[in-house]
Design a protein around this nucleic acid. Structure first.
Lengths: 213, 213
DNA sequence: CGATAATTTGACCGGTTGGTAAAACCTTAC
DNA sequence: GTAAGGTTTTACCAACCGGTCAAATTATCG
């Protein structure tokens, strides 16, 4: 008798590990483009190179796959913000935060789009995480920024909207990639636009925050 | 014999005008949340308070409704950028561009999300518009900005990425509304956050571009 | 009014959806 | 080898999908 999804043995077999990873990879492709409702299990199964019932042997429902992906993204996604260090200098911290977020937009655009799709559609699966852990983390870092402003290290500004603006400008290059490419033309379809973006964003934020380098 | 969709009379009847508007309104609600593939005709029909065949009497296909909405949004959406005037001062032009885009995010969040969903999902229905009219318009305005930079009115910067950053920061308040609200907490769930955002963005862009006010 | 055209409805269609059942097929450990 | 458990497949289901059709209903206008 087959009791799936490692219910019995606790320890997952080699095949389980491989196939689950395969499925998640395929699901990331599909979900990040079509969103949860717009994606089908058949599509994911085909992308993963297996039959639908076989896929459903590893993940009981479509939601389970999505949930798994979202959870994974949520943790890695906030890593750069977590690394934001109160002890560091405003210049290096903000500059490297921008750079890291931009690198993630370049290297993990699917993850960015998965998240964007979810939030755009009202965040039905992650509202609690947004109001809980995310808000808490942002509150904490906002306080750091506010401290820098109070001590005159950076210009006075609303720390929350500063964080929002860094999020939006950097993620834009992943989420609106098609538009960015269309506007820049095919000459800039290489990865050069990320370097240009980094230069621009660092300049505008540094000067905008009156940080002398 | 009923030849629908104003094929015969050219002049649309009162009922046609009303119902079509009703459908588009309902469809905007649905499409802007779920994207094209994630939305169903049944859902739109119910939201519009009519039966599915009745809805399909006014719009032959699901795509026709979506197409209609996208077309409408595309024209009104770029209005602020079109208004960008080469003769005006950099300060007033950029400042009012930011303000107008932010007002649109506040007043027409569904339109913003419809567009975001479309682009996020690879812009399958509007790729031509992006590469054609949109690129052309941006190219034109980028040249204006480049001129300002050359003549020393604003700091030297990449005009394309400047436009991208204004788009992303302002639309963020519509597209990621749920996240913004979650992070700011319910105290800021009123419309005050838009004023704060306007203050922040005008500050950062003005100082970032070294524009003396 | 009556007639003509515009609108609305219910029944329906083939294909797809998320998901299940059970049997067949492999792997692994003894 | 063989038996137990892990994996895959085939066949299937009810609900839903986008869309059609013809008949019924309603609005318009002379």
């Amino acid at each position: 008798m087959a009791i799936p999804r490692a219910a019995k043995t606790q320890r997952r077999t080699r095949i389980q590990e491989e196939k689950e990873e395969l499925i998640l990879e395929a699901a990331l492709d599909v979900f990040s483009v079509n969103g949860f409702r717009g994606s089908t299990i058949d599509e994911i199964a085909e992308a993963a190179g297996m039959s639908k019932p076989n896929l459903l042997y590893y993940f009981r429902t479509k939601e389970a796959i999505h949930r798994h992906l979202i959870d994974r993204v949520l943790t890695t996604w906030l890593e750069p913000l977590r690394a934001f260090d109160a002890e560091g200098s405003p210049e290096s911290e903000i500059r490297s935060y921008i750079r890291r977020k931009l690198e993630m937009a370049r290297d993990f655009p699917r993850e960015s789009r998965l998240f964007a799709n979810e939030v755009l559609q009202g965040a039905p699966h992650i509202e609690d995480e947004l109001k809980g852990p995310l808000k808490q983390l942002v509150d904490e870092k906002a306080e750091v920024i506010r401290g820098w402003a109070r001590s005159g290290k950076i210009a006075k500004c609303d720390p929350y909207h500063l964080i929002f603006s860094i999020w939006s400008t950097t993620q834009h290059y992943a989420d609106f990639d098609v538009q960015v490419r269309a506007v820049l033309g095919q000459d800039m379809s290489g990865e050069g636009r990320f370097d240009d973006a980094a230069r621009f964003l660092e300049q505008i934020f540094m000067d905008g925050l009156k940080i002398r380098s």
